[in-house]
């Protein structure tokens, strides 16, 4: 089974811990950057994909440089902090930027994938509807739109309008 998904690389990083300065998650849509402060005091930051297919779980610095540039554009004080740790994760990038939560033509095989680099806030709802789909062998009305065949029918859920160039973030 070939899926409308490509595997890409996303890096994130944390700064050294500092006393509380930020009490919520802030995202910068135009610059593509997000930041929050962990309970330990580290600023957790990320943004763009490295931009090519990868399973290597290792990224390169220019991408983080770009991400942090956007970060400083939004919060100039970040400049004085130090980057403590970085990591690279594997992202299942779907062709319209939205996940697939669906049954398949293979009996007993269900899909919950293509979450791209987001979706953590949707985890409870996706888990709940996915459980419903598996238990009843049919989609729930809340995940009906996230079907696999939407790519064939054209019922795309492309919030950013980037189409199939999944690596442009």
């Amino acid at each position: 089974m070939t899926l409308p998904i490509e595997t890409h690389l996303l890096q994130a990083c944390v700064s050294e811990p500092v006393k509380p300065v930020l009490d919520s998650v802030v995202t910068f849509g135009a610059g593509h950057f997000y930041v929050s402060q962990s309970d330990k005091g580290e600023m957790v930051m990320g943004g763009d994909l490295d931009g090519y297919n990868s399973y290597a779980q290792r990224g390169n610095l220019p991408t983080l440089q770009h991400v942090l540039t956007e970060g400083i554009a939004m919060m100039p004080f970040l400049s004085k902090l130090k980057m403590l740790r970085t990591w690279g994760g594997i992202m299942d990038m779907s062709m319209d930027g939205s996940p697939i939560i669906d049954k398949t033509h293979i009996e007993g095989l269900y899909l919950n994938c293509g979450w791209c680099y987001g979706g953590f806030k949707a985890t409870p709802a996706s888990g709940w509807t996915f459980a419903h789909t598996i238990a009843q062998d049919r989609v729930h009305e809340l995940n009906a739109g996230y079907s696999l065949n939407r790519f064939s029918t054209g019922h795309l859920i492309d919030e950013k309008g980037l189409g199939t160039k999944t690596w442009i973030s």
Partner: peptide
């Protein structure tokens, strides 16, 4: 248009 092997 859509389906990719996404090789490792």
């Amino acid at each position: 248009v859509y389906n990719r092997k996404s090789l490792r």
